[in-house]
Amino acid sequence: MNPFVNVEINQAVATITFFHPQSNSFPSSQLKQLTEAITQLNDNSQVSVIVLKSEGEKAFCAGASFDELLQVDTIEKGRAFFSGFAHVINAMRKSNKIIVGRIQGKTVGGGVGIVAACDYTFAHTDAAIKLSELAIGIGPFVIEPAVSRKIGMPAMSEMTLEATEWKTAQWAHKNMLFTRLFDSYETMDASLDVFVTQLSSFNPEALFEMKKVLWKDTEHWDTLLLERAEISGTLVLSDFTKNALNAFKKK
């Protein structure tokens, strides 16, 4: 299949599904599509809940597109690419809908930031997570505020510095990145349907006010995440990163 970002609306619930043949990784064009999909739903007063999911069972999101990262040859291009993740997280943060994530498989790098920006998450026990950025010469600078907000700085430090190690879904659940954990896709999806159906029956004005409370003191992220994108955009130009990305692609 070709890459896509789709939106389906069923009564008060909008489901956003994304897909990329390379383990649901994100090129900049799809980051833009996802940002627009989330933002456009702000104008739909009939929708009060968003379910964010990816296609397939093996991977929820492999993070940034390595193919596109290898093509970055200026600071401006690097900043623009990593700003894509900044825009997605800020769109999720500023959305007037509660966002529920469905995390069915492994998640790496920027994908962990997207999970962290969800307001509530359902995850499968196969959904291991990893922040591998230091291993390729950059760092999880853009997503750090979102991830640290969920799991705390000690767990964030552990994940970041253990850049080659997968953290289990149980670890993610214990550290509050995953709200609910299931060992069956069928049970997870049934529970997710029940939850979002009930959630969407609540007063949408109350949900929106609660959303603002949940994200209090993050207004500066509009600037902060773009500043972080410049750090990553500069580091991606290093020989270390180029060599690491090429070595990874040859595996």
Rank of each mutant, 00 (worst) to 15 (best):
P3I: 09
P3F: 09
F4G: 00
V5K: 00
N6S: 14
E8W: 00
I9C: 05
Q11G: 05
A12S: 13
A12Q: 12
V13A: 03
I16L: 10
T17W: 04
Q22D: 14
Q22R: 13
Q22P: 00
Q22N: 13
S23P: 00
N24W: 07
S25N: 14
S25W: 04
K32P: 01
L34F: 09
E36S: 15
E36M: 15
A37Q: 04
A37H: 06
Q40C: 12
D43Q: 15
N44M: 04
Q46R: 10
V47G: 00
V49W: 07
L52N: 01
S54Y: 05
E57P: 02
C61D: 15
G63T: 08
A64M: 09
S65R: 03
F66W: 11
E68I: 15
L70V: 08
Q71V: 05
Q71C: 08
I75Q: 12
E76N: 10
R79H: 12
R79E: 13
S83Q: 13
F85D: 00
F85I: 09
N90Y: 11
A91S: 14
K94I: 08
K94N: 15
S95P: 06
S95C: 05
N96R: 14
N96G: 01
I98H: 02
I99R: 01
G101A: 05
R102G: 01
R102P: 02
Q104I: 15
G109T: 10
G110T: 05
G111W: 06
V112Q: 01
I114H: 01
V115R: 01
A116G: 02
A117M: 02
C118V: 07
C118Y: 03
D119C: 06
Y120L: 09
T121M: 06
H124L: 14
H124S: 09
T125M: 09
T125A: 06
D126A: 12
D126H: 12
S132L: 12
E133A: 14
E133W: 04
E133F: 15
A135F: 03
I138Q: 02
I138Y: 05
F141I: 08
V147K: 01
R149W: 11
R149H: 13
R149T: 09
K150H: 02
K150N: 01
M153K: 14
M159P: 02
A163R: 03
E165P: 00
K167P: 01
Q170E: 15
A172P: 06
A172T: 08
K174E: 12
N175G: 06
N175Q: 12
M176R: 15
F178M: 06
F178N: 06
L181F: 11
L181E: 05
F182D: 00
M188V: 06
L192Q: 04
D193I: 13
D193N: 15
V196W: 03
T197S: 11
T197F: 04
Q198C: 07
S200V: 10
F202D: 05
E205Y: 11
E205H: 11
L207S: 04
L207G: 03
F208K: 13
K212P: 04
V213A: 11
L214V: 08
K216R: 13
K216S: 11
K216L: 10
T218Y: 02
E219K: 13
D222P: 05
T223Q: 13
L224M: 10
L225Y: 03
E227F: 05
R228N: 15
E230H: 11
I231C: 02
I231P: 00
I231L: 12
G233L: 04
V236H: 04
L237I: 13
D239S: 14
F240V: 14
K242D: 07
A244Q: 10
A244M: 09
L245K: 03
